[in-house]
Structure formats: C-alpha cells, structure tokens
Design a protein around this nucleic acid. Structure first.
Lengths: 199, 199
DNA sequence: TACTGGATAGAGCGTTCGTTCTAGAGAGGG
DNA sequence: CCCTCTCTAGAACGAACGCTCTATCCAGTA
C-alpha cells in the first residue's frame, strides 16, 4: 500500500491540513484562498482537490478538526498541570497567553474566526465546530468532576470556562496584551472555588 | 447647507453605515462586498465612495463604531434594569439571548467577526474595535463601582464580564441555544457577588 | 514490458472582488 | 441664466476567487 517514508517530512495531505488550519486561524475562512493554501502547503491545486474533492468547505472542516485537537492538547496540558484546580486553570490562561504573545498576537483560538464567519451557512463546517466545542467542554468538565464538583454544576461551569477563555483570548488579541487572559484565569479560579466541596 | 428632510427616511450615508454594520455582523469583513453593501443600502457605488473615499476599511471602521453604540445601548439597558447588580447582569444575558434567537441566531456581537478577521492587518478598523471594547468595559465598570466594588476590582471584573458575554454569545450562536448565555449570566452574577461589599 | 491508479501539475473557466473614472442630476448663490 | 458643488449613477479595470479539466508522473502488479 505505502512504501516506508523515505524522508522525515509529512505527507502532502497532512501539509495541506496544517497550512489550512493555520491560515484559517489567522485570516479566517473568507480571507483565505485555496491557491494560497496550496502555495503555503507546498502542494499543487491538483493535490488539494484530489484529497478534498468537497472543495473549500470540506478542507476547512478538516482543518477545524485539526485545530480542535491542537487546542485540546493545550487544554489538557494546563488542566493536568496541578492537583489544585484553581492553579490548573490559571496555568491554562498562562499557556494561552504565552502562545498568543509568541505569535505576535496572531494565533488566537484556531477555530473562532471561521466559526463566526460560517455560522448558519456551511453545515459541514458548523458540524466540526460544534464537535470541537463539545470536545473542549468535555475535557474541562471531567477535570471539574475530578475536583469534586457535582455533575450538573461541572457541565455548566465547563461551558463558562471555555466561553470565558474564548472571550479573553479575543480581548488579548485585540489589545495585544496578556492581561485579559491572566485576569480571566483569576476570576475563573475564584468562581470555581465557590463550587469546590470544602467550601 | 441642508434643506429640511422632506421624507422621513434617513440619509444615504446613514443607510450605507447601517447596512454595512449588519452585513459585517452576519458575514464578516472578507465575506462582505462593497457592491452588496451598496445594493443592500439602496445606494450606488458612486455614493459609497463619495462618502467613504478611504474605501472598504474606512467604511468598516465607521460600521464598527455604529455597532459599538448599538451594543452599548443593550448593555446600558440591561445594567440599568435593576437595583440589584446580579439581577442587572442576568438581564443583560437575557436581552442578548432574545436578540440572538429573534434573528435566528444570526446577529451576535456586531463587531467580533470583523475584529478577528482584521486583527493585525487593518489599523483603522483595529482602532475602532479597541475603542468599542474600552467603551463597553467602561460602561460595566461604572455600574460595578456604583454597586460598591472597588476601583481596581471593578476595572478587572468589567473586562471579564464583557469577555464572558462575548464568549457565551459565540457559543450560543454556534449551538443555536440560549443556554450558554443564561448560564454565563448566572456564573457572572455569582462571581460578582463575591466582590460585593456586604460579603 | 505493459498496465493500472493514486498523486501531481497547472492552464483556464466564469465570476466576483475593490477600486477608479467619467458623466450627469439637481439645488443654491451670483 | 449660469456656475458651482454635492451627490448619484454605473461602466470598466486588473486581480483574485473557487473550481474543472486534461495531461503527466511514477511506484506496484502482472
């Protein structure tokens, strides 16, 4: 089926998905052209349409799924960084802030822009976006339950944690400052503390 | 200078700004064309470039300022709806949820999409976005101080309130559900309560 | 060697983009 | 009456858009 990889480089399909994900993150859906993607991925237009016969929408949906995983990694890293729940949450915001600053405030949430642009008009993409949000919420929810928060509270709080992180990341990007994220971390920690069993 | 308005309709410039604002809210910056704007505003291309010689960017910046005021009205209405701070906050989320559902989940925050698309690449627009966020934060901050919260806490909390509302509105739009907004309202109320003087 | 099918390559389709430009409409002042 | 100036009107420009299409390359199999 496939010969062993001769070089250490990744396959064409993977390069296309990665390039698309990064471009969507930085320029959004409408602002990103297929030709720019193929250029950036060092693939030809023929290859793009070979792997993604569904065109731009199918490609974007796959890129969203890629961004989903990417963000989930950060989330898990932050949430698993400490026994203390509130410390874990602030680690999350610190990680996000670092990544944001490191990219000169360019790389915010990998899917938000595309999500907003396509809401209500591109079902394939919306589906991927919905799954990503649900995935992130589930990750946070599980951590909250581990910390002893009840099922229903954990579910609702997880949603608010994700939403607040999203909003703070947007604000940080616009303001070119880590402050909104750090503040969000502190406020989320304080909110969660009111639900912790020992209270 | 100007003859008295003969009809009750608004002027051409105003129609252009309103149409642009609504289109940017729903389709974002890259997804909205000048010709679509002129069509929607019932103005000609000549009129658009007459009033906005700076082109699409200048027009978008003006539309952002329009959206700024629009959102500020809702914010003030919600925050001023009750003596009780926490009740006022949940009124905000209720108002936003109503508007969102009423537009079939189309009309979220009037500026977020454009803000994300143009961050770091359209200074004129970024400026308008920054001012809008600062404006909203100031509105919330003042209300928090009225409720007796200290200056620094009020400033930081105001930022988180705006950010969380932004994030929750995005989630509500994607999920086509009022729930994220209502939950955000409850959590924000709870967070704010921990800062209230009588605690 | 001949054949097959996945992958690559890019010219070209019709359309739309943001912008420019010229022309004219219409009211107000001289 | 004409001149001026604001505003309206839309044709036209080059560039970029998403996508289709044919041609070619090349490893694997027979």
């Amino acid at each position: 089926m496939k010969t062993a990889e001769k070089t250490s480089s990744v396959g064409t399909r993977e390069r296309i998905v990665r390039a698309t994900s990064r471009l969507l993150q930085r320029q959004g859906y409408e602002g990103t052209g297929i030709k720019q993607i193929s250029r950036e991925a060092e693939a030809t237009l023929g290859s793009v349409y070979h792997f993604f016969p569904g065109g731009k929408q199918e490609l974007a949906a796959e890129a969203i799924r890629h961004g989903d995983q990417e963000f989930a990694v950060i989330l898990r890293a932050g949430l698993g960084s400490a026994e203390d729940l509130t410390a874990a949450v602030t680690t999350c915001t610190t990680l996000l802030a670092r990544e944001l600053r490191g990219s000169d405030w360019q790389d915010g949430c990998p899917i938000t822009t595309t999500a907003l642009e396509t809401v209500g008009r591109a079902p394939v993409i919306e589906q991927a976006v919905t799954e990503a949000f649900a995935n992130w919420q589930a990750i946070v929810e599980e951590r909250l339950r581990t910390a002893g928060i009840g099922a229903e509270d954990a579910r609702e709080l997880a949603g608010t944690v994700i939403n607040t992180l999203e909003g703070a990341e947007l604000a940080a990007q616009v303001a070119r400052s880590e402050e909104p994220l750090h503040i969000a971390g502190r406020h989320l920690a304080r909110l969660l503390a009111t639900y912790l069993p020992q209270d």
